[in-house]
Design a protein around this nucleic acid. Structure first.
Lengths: 193, 193, 193, 193
DNA sequence: CATGAATGAGCCTTCATTCAT
DNA sequence: AATGAATGAAGGCTCATTCAT
């Protein structure tokens, strides 16, 4: 996938950088390349060689997760139940966002640092669009919801979970609750009368 | 309302500062007191005297809007239809958030710079909680929705509108669509069969 | 003594300022006229009217103490035992310095803010000089000690007490020990053999 | 001695910084890192990289001098005459303090910026304590003088020399006079009768 | 006389990025 | 390739003093 496979030592440095960055992001510490350099024991220059900007490093962190989502998306596209497919896809997306702190900023960014990120995001958005179209065609989804709304709504839910705060263990539960609420509506289902 | 009415010249400066800050916030420029000082032509010290921190200035911008919301909240509490009351309150809240850029950060902040802000936020949150309780008691709202979810969800929608981008003229429409979606659910209402 | 006796309200302000300043100095807080103004509840301008600079205020604090010392000096000059007179005078001086935090900086300053301060300092220095001369003439004091050394040495001892630190209750004891050491010498008196 | 030897260019900058700082300190100008940066023609960041705080820079100035004193201390500890050893040590200490303006603040500070400084100060204080103990044991020193008094007294004398003012050429003489006075006492030795 | 708003020089510090070694 | 020293714009904040009200 990578144009030039890295030399062995360069690959080791790449790994160390990503590992340290992962830790920082998980702790909520802002990613600063200088800081990463110090913590890895590498020179600043080395870190910059690998990641030209903090955003690039962040996207590198997010990549595996985006790839997982893309893989799930491919499976969802094979699902014959359009509603279940969409719901599963959205659920995974939200779970990923509230679980991995690197995702939210990458998802929200309008410009990407790495081509790979753009590629993955486009794949995901188009997967989402297809799933939405199918669900709408099946009459499962309210008609005024456009593909362009999917990402914002997912980001919005993730953001709501952040705002809500609370133990990190509860984040997934909250995310599920919010997604369910969004899907089913806050209004109670009219009791069959 | 203000403890000590400002001297005339001080009031004029206060106004200039707020006006400049308003412009910056509307343009999406981060609020920096030194920057505000430069643009108003006032000394830094003057700006600091009026607003000890950028947050205080931001909250000063948000205050009138929060007061309007609180006023609306009082009217909503008088409404006899619990569902309509809640919906109206939430609608106003979202409209305010996507209309006035100073609100979102103030709503999301866990600590306030001005006592007045805390006061207003508490009033609003408790109004929301009351309206939600009534609606829930009337069976109009899904039971797993707590008062503590209201603010996060509203912030989430406002955030989604931001992410969605697009012409600022469309922001209110988008906000309405998102709130409606959240209230009624993304799933199409089951056709009466 | 004061050229124009203050109006009653002005006198009251003067007293409040001095009282607040006293407290600040005793606590070791740096004297800032703005700060004093806030704490007295007076306007900055009022404080500046009374004391043009922080130094002036400090000297105002020191004045009563300097006057006490001057009074003691006059009594010392009447003492017929030159050594006892000098020792008593130096003891009082040191006690004052380590007891009243406003004195050290005033004593060390080469320029004064208030004429009254200059007057008092000159009186004291000349009292010291006279007492030293008499003691020297009586053969009680080493001959290489000049009048110009008296102030520096006293300031030096006070400074040493500050450096030494410790409970403020011990400061006077330490000061006495240091003065005694200086007077009698660190070297043990040769035992009569 | 230095953990990591500096690169050649970095070492040159280090030297420039120290040289400029030396000049400022000797002139009595307060050490400000930005100021040092401007005068060296280096970037602020460079100066901050080398010396995180003004205190650190000051201590770097003081270090060679402290090392000289420590070396002298080692020689003094080898002296068999306890009184001469102590006197020599104190004399050197005072000479250093009135000669090198960087020493007094470092000696008086209760907290150090550089570990090396702490190390050197501790060495010196313990050398002083040992010399004092020996002298006291030999009956050469008044018994009420504790090791904890040594530093304050030396700082006090240095301070007295500063207060006294006068030509910088006279400072050493004055320092000698004051130390001699302190050691021998201001009172004239009783003439053998 | 009293007031206190305004001033703005001046200090401190951080950090993304470059480039000589 | 790797290193890490250097850069310096940029932002934050304080405080002594003045002067309009």
């Amino acid at each position: 996938m990578t144009s030039t496979p890295l030399r062995k030592d360069a690959a080791r440095n790449w790994d160390r950088i990503v590992a340290v960055a992962r830790e920082l992001v998980d702790r909520g510490t802002p990613l600063q390349l200088n800081d990463v350099a110090r913590r890895t024991g590498l020179g600043v220059g080395t870190v910059y060689r690998h990641f030209a900007t903090p955003e690039a490093l962040l996207e590198a962190l997010a990549t595996p997760c985006l790839e997982d989502l893309a893989a799930h998306g491919r499976r969802a596209l094979a699902d014959t139940d359009p509603r279940r497919a969409l719901e599963g896809f959205l659920t995974r997306t939200i779970e990923a966002q509230v679980t991995d702190a690197s995702l939210a900023p990458v998802a929200a960014a309008s410009a990407d640092a790495l081509p790979r990120t753009t590629e993955l995001k486009e794949t995901l958005w188009s997967t989402g669009a297809t799933l939405l179209d199918r669900a709408r065609a099946a009459g499962a989804v309210r008609p005024d919801l456009a593909a362009a709304d999917l990402v914002p709504l997912m980001c919005g839910i993730a953001y709501a979970v952040d705002i809500r705060g609370g133990a990190s263990a509860d984040r997934i539960d909250t995310a599920h609750r919010y997604l369910t609420a969004l899907l089913g509506g806050l209004w109670a289902a009219p009791t069959a009368a």
